[in-house]
Nucleic acid binder design. Structure first.
Lengths: 130, 130, 130, 130
DNA sequence: GTGGTCTAGACCACG
DNA sequence: GTGGTCTAGACCACG
């Protein structure tokens, strides 16, 4: 598991850890059952305080992404793929809603927004524009 | 000019004021030259400290949306309509970029996102579902 | 006499009036003895308060650029051309001093500064580079 | 880090702090990564309010010179040396531009300005009067 | 400990 | 009246 910490970012360090782990679970990079490093190990690796890692793990546990047990360590929760899909859809839908509100109040047309979506979906693809 | 403050929001009060005024300028609800309420008046109306309103006005001034002058008060800057359009496009494009990133990492397809955009653009319309 | 007021500038209005009149005297555009408009007339022309114009005239009088007499109105002082030249030199020399300090502390060489001076002196000239 | 405050200057205290720190970063006296004193410490040292120091730090953060983080303190940003040079050049060029404008409107010749630049560049040098 | 937000006052220059 | 600066407190999240 790879996590990058930016000391100069304004995002709190605990949130950087939390978001990156969540991203990797949602994208399927971290599969259910996979063991996460212990809080002490991760803290040492990232050169941050154990308390900081603890806060990230705590939040992820509360949201159901990981499970922690005394003596068992921490692992990715056995999430139904439908749950994952719902989480992702929720995240995207919230973004779309906000974007459309901004577009409407700023007199930006539907076609322009659709074009932007097409544009960013194409980026990073290799000659794939089906 | 109408502004709603949520004391319980995690967004700072000064930012709530700032964003709402910016929204109204970008949407054309506040026209160039329009006088804004004085910092003291707005502070009293919103039941917040003068300093809080000042921080909002300061940020808007630095970004060029309003002009302030001691003894002259505060007014919406003479903005070119092209500037307004650019600002709106920038805001929407940043939103789209983030949405597409989330969609890609969550295995959500382009078509699904396009459908969401259509859906939210239709909402609030009268008998318009072309 | 032409004066432009910018309501959106952060420079106080009285200072805008003061500086523009001083510039015109120092550059020779306003000659000694020339009558200035009365404070009331100028205030009406510029659509500002009489008190604002008064402050500008007051400062210019104190610095010796204009003379005011009850019933005689206001006029440009009979300045010796050597005085004008000294004022101009003082202003330029102060600017050069600050520029060189900035250059030194920023590791910018003398040649680079000399080049900039040449460059800006050429601007606006017609094929004159003696 | 040494900072001098003049309570009687017309430059706001927060700006004095801001400019002096920026000067030291631009001149290389403060290297990237160097920790700055905490706002409370500096405020106590300079005998000013914490808010005043905060405003200076806030401006420097927005301009990219320093990075701040709750719980992490404040440090000089990792700046590219090319950025530093550009910032210095920008500052000097603005000064030269203003100087030349003053000189032109005051009928002061290019040679005189060039001589002044030479003169101030020599000052403070040891036995260097080439 | 750190920086970020907020309050309730004050005094100033400007118009 | 207006905005700009400053003080001396407070509470918060973060590390």
């Amino acid at each position: 598991m790879t996590i990058f910490i930016s000391q100069s970012s304004s995002t709190p360090i605990y949130a950087q850890i939390e978001f990156q782990i969540k991203d990797q679970i949602l994208s399927g990079a971290l599969l259910p059952g996979t063991a996460l490093p212990s809080m002490r190990t991760l803290a040492k690796d990232l050169r941050v305080s154990v308390i900081t890692v603890q806060k990230a793990y705590e939040n992820l546990t509360r949201e159901g992404f990981i499970t922690t047990g005394v003596g068992r360590g921490t692992a990715v929760s056995p999430l139904h793929s439908s749950f994952l899909r719902d989480e992702n859809l929720k995240r995207v839908e919230e973004g779309v809603k906000k974007v459309v509100e901004d577009a409407k109040s700023g007199n930006i047309g539907k076609e322009e927004v659709l074009d932007m979506v097409e544009k960013y979906f194409s980026k990073g693809d290799d000659h794939d524009n089906s």
